[in-house]
Amino acid sequence: MSSAILERQANSQGLPGLKSFRGPFLVLLVFAVVIPQVHSDYLFDAILTPFLAISLAALGLNLLTGYAGQVSLGSAAFMAVGAFAGYNFLLRIPGLPLLAGLAFAGLTAAVIGIVFGLPSLRLRGFYLAVSTLATQFFVQWALTNISWFSNDDTSGVISPPPLHLGGFALDSPVRRYLLCLGVVAVLTFLAMRLVSGQTGRALIAVRDSELGARVLGVKVLRTKLFIFAVSSFYIGVAGALWSFAYLRTIEPDGFDLDRSFQILFVIIIGGLASIRGAFLGAAFIVVLPLLLSRAGAILLGPGFDSGLVDLVQKIFLGALIILFLRLEPAGLSALVGRLRIRRNAT
């Protein structure tokens, strides 16, 4: 094996090293300039906007689970916190700019993340994973049962305020998509910078050997809480985008355990400890049901049972998780990386 491949492997497990940001920038350019020329509300509303929100949540989880090795089964709870916090800030502080609302949503999630990250200081592995379930169930319960969070709305389904950016109304699918794209791009850039420096190395060190990290002077507890906060910030903002730009309703029900699993599956399929992996995995998860229902329609005729497709999708997803963990633990990201090396070699 050439050392280029080995280096790529090392990087695929975590660190982009000193690589340039040219590739990601070109991708961003395509998404920001070329794709908005397409005239299809469906593309933006049903595919790209949820894709971006899921990507951002997965990116947040990947910082925590992929890089720092702290497995969380409570991502959806932090999405819910972000969504409801964003809603409440925009509702209760008249004239608060949308971006500030999103930032507050993320910060609220970060605070909650630190609180629920405290057990990680004593617990590891399964015990931590189980304790994150407490977050999941408690947050969902609190948002359902404490009516202040939903502004005492009894219907259980509340709508976000109209979205404005400056004087610019975000009232079309493309505009909402562009909002998501902008937020996701900035946060992704920051995450790439974060993991490529000393802090990123410290995260991986904590993951790979807590003792080794501690002996070298990594402040393990502080590092864990820090990444819980950052991860929750990202996931919280993702939840706000999901509710505001994609669903355009805010309800606790959508942020259930299945959503948490979904985000976890995104990073397993996309690649643990990989920024790119979060996007590849999210694309896969968003597109998979669409492909399966198309395939169902073709194979079984138009009258097929959509419940059947759900079940098949479930089985398919479960099988993929197992296959990826077994055959390609570094996920789609590693597959793509290898393709690129092969192409460069020829």
């Binding site: 975590g14 190395r201 790979d208 002996v215």
Partner: peptide
């Protein structure tokens, strides 16, 4: 006890 997710240089930088 090395950090297997990192390159040799990155390990030493730790």
């Amino acid at each position: 006890v090395l950090f297997k997710g990192m390159s040799v240089t990155q390990n030493v930088m730790m």
